[in-house]
Nucleic acid binder design. Structure first.
Lengths: 348, 348
DNA sequence: GGTTAGCACTCACTGGGTGCGAGTGCTAAC
DNA sequence: GTTAGCACTCGCACCCAGTGAGTGCTAACC
């Protein structure tokens, strides 16, 4: 199954050209464009072999050849020359990303936008999964006679707060006691562990005096915890798909847009993907509606722990070399900037 | 310029039919479908008059008539019968909206989704403009030796917090003093007033002992304030546009999607619109790319003060009666539920 | 045996031609 | 003022032939 040097060269030329032009590549075109020292007839024979091996296909008898998913896979794995970004490009990216780094969610959103601008594809960024994040403290502060703010601070620096209107009376002392007790009780537990414990029951028995207040607050507490565990998906560049001639078909464009707009499904696919740089091409994607797309994701981390994801989705005919390099650089930049500034972030 | 009863009836029939079918309406079709007691020839004469008056137009000589923007305007203003929603529909909407009312942003996001589901159009919801919201208090809390959480609470109940990494040392006392001083200084000022004051300068002179700490915190403070003033735009149902045959043209679909995806521009258009139920049809829209669209917005309020907006955008051929009724009901519901639960919200 | 020139063949695409049908505008009669 | 009748218009679907890019095969060449 090892291909000859010449076959590889031909395949590389076809994939490269097709990525650029979206037109099926003919043998004569190839022989004229690249001086390989062989005639179009010879190229035809080689192409025929490559087709038999599953690397190329024919839209119809009298058309040129089109690379298959298998060909793209070979291209990505070994034929493709990794694109090294210029210093300007690198600086541009890191400048844009470190600009307003003080807010995690906004930086991630900004990364998605930047990625779609550079690659001209549909991009997405997933905020970190906070499952393993541990509780630092809980603070309940008075706002007015019936309103309090509940604030949950995690070790990563993530903060969540919610304004609650209470139906039972409270005093500042009691609020403070409740905050302290809850902090004492949960400190060091991960957020998902906290969700699993039957909080209300435990509190009822432990701190009887506060039970009514606690009963009022606890359901909200659970709700906030759930909100903290949610990952957010930011997407950008939906309409970039229109610049690909293969999506000039209204039905195809519609299907693509409907797919990427089903955020719940899409988020799930992303969450369940392995970490690191992952490229899945066409039929390698499990999802039915993604059989004509390639999905590239990479993960970034915060203090080496919480993992979020960043990537693009587009037609299988995409500039893999460029896109991979850009995503690589961006995830590095993100991880770096989150490490340096620590938890300097605004939460949701 | 007053139209005869008969002309109005014909016009109403044409607009109604065209909204349903998207097909130009012919005189014979009309005479067969509606028993008006006049022949197709008479209808043709009336149609010809209506065309001269600018209410109808001809795609080409041998096609039926299509309503103009002027006709839609007349239809919306006087011909249309207001659609009264059934009890089931009303209950469905209010149930969906009050479901997770504890979080303002999420409720608004949910409203946008619901609206696009019901109307099958592209919907949007704008979070309230917080310009007039006044400061309640500022609280800066320690997280670890170099990290603090800054929390800004507004009178409406809106809370914003940001984790800051400080480069100067601090003590709990100093943080508390700074919080108290800032609160004292800004309490009762609106958020936009706070932005305008040269905060750093004032603080340098007022509280000399804390100047270094304040200097470190102030730029972030400004940044958070700006974030609190930002309105958020939630949109949903982008791909609904594909269900309209007039957008089967890939160029049109692309233009529409690119327009609504330019969130900055779109947000601006929405912010600058009058409050209350506003319908702009086709060329009544100032924006160039909206000449073939109708935009319907209504505003909801919170405690009778902060105004947000909710609405839809779609082809001029839309079910105005139904859409207007739904939006009306939803804004009422939103205003109501925000009033009842007060500031029971989670901020961003 | 690999390589190449030559040639017949395939097939999408384009553009002109045609018939159909829905609909109009006009006219003359009611 | 209303209506029937009729010529006319024009988009649309369909057919058909010409074009051109590209293939597959064969026979000759190195």
């Amino acid at each position: 199954m090892d291909l000859s040097e010449r076959k590889l060269k031909i395949l590389q030329a076809i994939v490269g050209d097709f990525i650029r032009t979206a037109e099926p590549i003919g043998s004569r075109t190839l022989s004229k464009k690249y001086d390989m020292g062989i005639s179009s007839a010879t190229i035809r024979n080689e192409m025929s072999d490559l087709e038999e091996l599953g690397f190329l296909s024919h839209p119809h008898t009298s058309a040129g050849r089109v690379p298959s998913d298998k060909a793209y896979r070979l291209y990505v794995n070994s034929l493709m020359e990794k694109r090294t970004l210029t210093k300007q490009e690198k600086e541009f990216i890191s400048k844009k990303l470190t600009n307003n780094v003080s807010e995690l969610e906004k930086t991630i959103q900004c990364a998605a936008r930047l990625l779609s601008e550079i690659t001209q594809l549909t991009s997405f960024a997933l905020t970190p999964n906070q499952n393993e994040d541990k509780l630092k403290y809980i603070n309940i502060l008075p706002v007015d006679s019936s309103t309090v703010v509940m604030m949950i601070v995690a070790e990563s620096g993530k903060v969540s707060n919610t304004t609650l209107r209470l139906i039972v009376p409270y005093s500042e002392d009691r609020l403070e006691l409740l905050s302290k007790s809850m902090t004492y009780y949960y400190k060091g537990k991960t957020l998902s562990e906290m969700l699993k414990v039957d909080i209300i029951k435990n509190f009822k028995t432990d701190i009887v005096a506060l039970s009514r207040l606690a009963e009022n607050i606890m359901p909200n507490f659970l709700h906030i915890l759930e909100g903290m565990l949610d990952v957010n998906l930011y997407m950008d560049g939906y309409t970039n798909i229109f610049s690909f001639p293969e999506y000039n078909d209204i039905v195809k464009a519609k299907m693509f847009l409907e797919m990427v707009n089903q955020k719940d499904i899409f988020t799930n696919i992303l969450i369940n993907r392995d970490n690191g740089m992952i490229v899945t091409i066409g039929n390698e994607n499990a999802d039915n509606h993604m059989q004509e797309c390639s999905l590239i994701t990479a993960s970034y981390h915060i203090d080496g722990k919480l993992l979020g994801k960043l990537g693009v989705i587009g037609p299988t005919r995409m500039k893999y070399d460029e896109v991979i390099s850009v995503i690589e650089l961006m995830t590095e930049n993100l991880s770096e900037s989150f490490k340096l500034t620590g938890g300097n972030e605004e939460n949701e």
